[in-house]
């Protein structure tokens, strides 16, 4: 059977991300109870897998690395139609940069067995590096196409896809197994259904730690990360802020006047 792996990430809800601040003393994130959600772009990656499954006989594994709470987003993917869910979770995985994250996910993919394609979101809303997909591909020693917006041909061992480019696209022919990172243009993700949620209740999430993956401690998490945060500075605005007062009409009038005076309209 055709095997698809989808890599997903739990991220702080992007709509409330402005409430997250960095504690300058400890250099850690103060999350202030911002809820963790499925990374928006990963929904498109899962949808790509689900659409393929609707057409062919396929099995979808969803893989995430994160804290135990990230199990919720794996569960959400199961409710959306994925067949199996994996959460790579271990204290040793904490503090990973994109490199160590990709390494850990690649080890999880290998442990899960043979695969034909791997779908990832193009980037996460919190890190927004776009590195994890290509780095997973490198660790798995398979090709990658990033930013795909259309799958033109997907029959057999060679797929043809359109990859987004500045003002255009690249038409790419690639031999599977391969990694694809997807953009929002690829599809329209389905919404959770009640029956999906009921079905997902019966599905178990497999949790793997460092023991199960059999990887050395120095290659995962903070220890396995080549890059690290050295300092945090606050950004001070150089602008003198003027809040315009008065009734709505007056504010609009004042604003137009100021912009005219500044010579910008």
């Amino acid at each position: 059977m055709f095997k698809i792996v989808v890599c997903v990430k739990a991220v702080p809800d992007p709509k409330e991300a402005c409430n997250i601040k960095i504690d300058p003393a400890t250099k850690t994130l103060m999350r202030c109870d911002v809820p963790m959600v499925l990374n928006p772009l990963d929904k498109y990656a899962l949808e790509a897998a689900l659409q393929f499954k609707a057409e062919f006989d396929a099995h979808i594994s969803v893989l995430s690395m994160g804290p135990p709470e990230a199990g919720n987003i794996v569960k959400e993917c199961l409710a959306l139609g994925a067949d199996r869910g994996f959460l790579l979770s271990d204290r040793a995985f904490a503090g990973a940069d994109a490199f160590a994250t990709a390494y850990t996910l690649a080890k999880g993919i290998e442990k899960n067995g043979p695969y034909d394609v791997v779908f990832c979101g193009m980037a996460s809303s919190d890190g927004s590096t776009e590195w994890v997909g290509p780095e997973i591909a490198t660790f798995l020693k398979i090709p990658v196409v990033t930013r795909i917006k259309e799958i033109v041909e997907y029959n057999g061992q060679w797929w043809t896809v359109k990859a987004e480019l500045e003002n255009g696209y690249r038409l790419v022919r690639v031999q599977i197994p391969a990694v694809f990172t997807v953009t929002r243009e690829l599809n329209t993700p389905r919404r959770l259904s009640f029956s999906g949620i009921i079905k997902a209740r019966k599905k178990e999430i497999t949790r793997w730690g460092i023991q199960e993956l059999g990887v050395p401690e120095e290659s995962v998490g903070l220890k396995g990360s080549p890059s690290m945060v050295s300092t945090i500075a606050s950004m001070d605005s150089r602008r003198k802020v003027e809040i315009l007062e008065g009734k709505r009409e007056e504010k609009a009038e004042q604003l137009v006047q100021r912009l005219v005076n500044a010579g910008v309209i």
Binding site: T129, W131, P134, T138, F139, V144, T146
Partner: peptide, 23 residues
Amino acid sequence: STAMGRELAPLIAARLDTGLTAH
């Protein structure tokens, strides 16, 4: 940080076993 750079940079970084800072 172009479409090409964002794909090529992580491919090179992973091959060279090194870190890469985005954007």
